[in-house]
Design a protein around this nucleic acid. Sequence first.
DNA 1: GGTGTTATCTAAACACCGTCCAGATCGGAC
DNA 2: GTCCGATCTGGACGGTGTTTAGATAACACC
Lengths: 212, 212
Amino acid sequence: MSTAAVADTRPYHHGDLRRALVDAAARILEREGPSALSLRAVAREAGVSPAAPYHHFKDKNELLEAVAHVGWEALGEAMLDVRDKGADVQSLMTELGVAYVCFSQRHPALYRVMYDRSRDKDALPEGMQDKEDSAYCLVRETFKKVAGPEVADVDIELATIAAWCAAHGLAEMSGFAQFNPLREALGGDEAFLRGVLSHLGSFGNLRQDPAE
Amino acid sequence: MSTAAVADTRPYHHGDLRRALVDAAARILEREGPSALSLRAVAREAGVSPAAPYHHFKDKNELLEAVAHVGWEALGEAMLDVRDKGADVQSLMTELGVAYVCFSQRHPALYRVMYDRSRDKDALPEGMQDKEDSAYCLVRETFKKVAGPEVADVDIELATIAAWCAAHGLAEMSGFAQFNPLREALGGDEAFLRGVLSHLGSFGNLRQDPAE
DNA sequence: GGTGTTATCTAAACACCGTCCAGATCGGAC
DNA sequence: GTCCGATCTGGACGGTGTTTAGATAACACC
């Protein structure tokens, strides 16, 4: 036995445990929320001893970092899916905002881990403003395409940050109970989101011909 | 001894322990951050046994709720302080936004506790949209005053929520390391904040004469 | 003023947590 | 086939939130 036995209960020494741990963590997150995400619970879920994860991650933080990383990639994909919707800037940015917030609503626990890590580090994931297909760059490139070359990079960056902050704020607060009456009055959650997003981002600021 | 001895080491049975615990928690928060805020540490800081807090709070959550409550009141006061600055809406809202974010920067740990509690409950503090001098109502009333009576309440509420989300997002992300180059390029943190806030909130939406 | 009631506090215990250590186990290189 | 190094386990340590039983002291009442 050994090398050949593919899908045994324990293919390798234990198998690809690093990935198994991240998957287990994601499973716990979806099933029981962030408060249940202890390192021991992850090990239990993966069927190993509590000390096993320490051969793949320096500590609990490093595991959470890995979990957050897959979350950021999934968020990036979700936003790429809508990058062709929307004729003008306003509606495209709204579409991106809806995609962002909907992701956070579909994976609330994961989203919380993602931002808890960022807050602890006081930084977004490394390289987020550089690598081409990240959510952040997608927003910035959208702004840049629309604004044209005359607009200063500083303004592009400020607009991107502003949009990002707004989306993040809405993602964290959209489910708050106080908004339920308004949500229902508008006929559902997505209408509510679009309503809020329509009040956010004065994208006209970026145009060169200020009609004001 | 007893009733008369005012400021002894332990005036009452223990004194006003409930308040002492909240104060101790706030002290730990400022000194060591949110990760150090254990119930036992609070009890230690207040000089009582680990079980003592349970005679004043159902559990740790309830203590944190009390801590968050004082935080929300302090935030409301900080925003009331600037409610007369700024000639037009845009600049007044910017001023309020700066006050909001600066509060979160002055008390980062407290701000985090405040929103962690809200996220757990999926709700802002109870009564926040009702009691007159809350930060939330201050923003809404500002919008209402400017918009005039013709604007629908729904739009006022949406604008308020949008502004709040934007401010919260900026509060949580303003310190992120990725923004440091831009912050320095703009000549300091407050300039950076104003720059981002200027791209947020298309307050013109609320005016009745859409010059568009 | 003594007495009983009730709120308050302590000490000890429980289960769980993150983390480290010594030793067992096993894959792969020589 | 033997050794090495990576991987995993069992057990331990200190810390956590919470509960229980029992001590203590303020207060109400006679």
